[in-house]
Design a protein around this nucleic acid. Sequence first.
DNA 1: ATAATATTCAAATGATTATTTGACTGTTTG
DNA 2: CAAACAGTCAAATAATCATTTGAATATTAT
Lengths: 120, 120
Amino acid sequence: MNSLTHLPHDHDKNIQNVLNSMPESKKFSEAASLFQQLGDGTRLKILWFLCHSRECVSNIAAAVGMSKAVVSHHLQLLRKSNLVTSERIGQEIHYSLNNTREAELIHQAIDSIFDITCPK
Amino acid sequence: MNSLTHLPHDHDKNIQNVLNSMPESKKFSEAASLFQQLGDGTRLKILWFLCHSRECVSNIAAAVGMSKAVVSHHLQLLRKSNLVTSERIGQEIHYSLNNTREAELIHQAIDSIFDITCPK
DNA sequence: ATAATATTCAAATGATTATTTGACTGTTTG
DNA sequence: CAAACAGTCAAATAATCATTTGAATATTAT
């Protein structure tokens, strides 16, 4: 909660409530770093794929049409953001969407936006 | 729809359906550029603010604690992505969330993530 | 018209990030 | 143990992006 802030102009009678309910800057940074994972086309493609299948790196790379090194790199980023998890099975490492509330929200957001972008 | 693709390994019986329903790369780029707008902490803060109030640049700058030039710059980016609109009123320019399906989806996503990040 | 206010623009800088390449680690199979 | 396969890592390059600053534009008030 913030203390009373004074804005240069007075347009919105309810502005003080908005200012009071504004999260701290740190929260915005945290949330932004989550959304940032969706802000790259190749990573979004990988993430979309993992929303619909659990697969090894080679298969993901083949499915999205990118090199294994690039896919591996982006998978690390997604893993650091806790959006995906990995499990070694023999010589392969299988990746899947993480079972967290954040990952589920992202999953929903991706589904929603592709309903928009790709109307059937 | 894609034609038959062969993956190096065979893990998922349903994989062909997933591959067939995968959007084109262009769609991923478009969607990513939308999500990218949420990937910066300062821009997310501005966008959050505009989800809750319609205000002029000076007030937005004061509310989020940033310079007018920075806020103006980010507002241009948000406007180019069709997430916000602007209207001149006297010497001020008032910005608000755009009335589109994309903007509404983003609005929902922001609300959802802050329910997560900022549990009450 | 002049001054004051609100906003935008453009150039410069610094920071972050994606991609490529090849070498490296770990695992299974013969 | 050696060969083959799956994945990761690190260095280098290229590209993108945020921030700052001050000048420029547009509107209103005196």
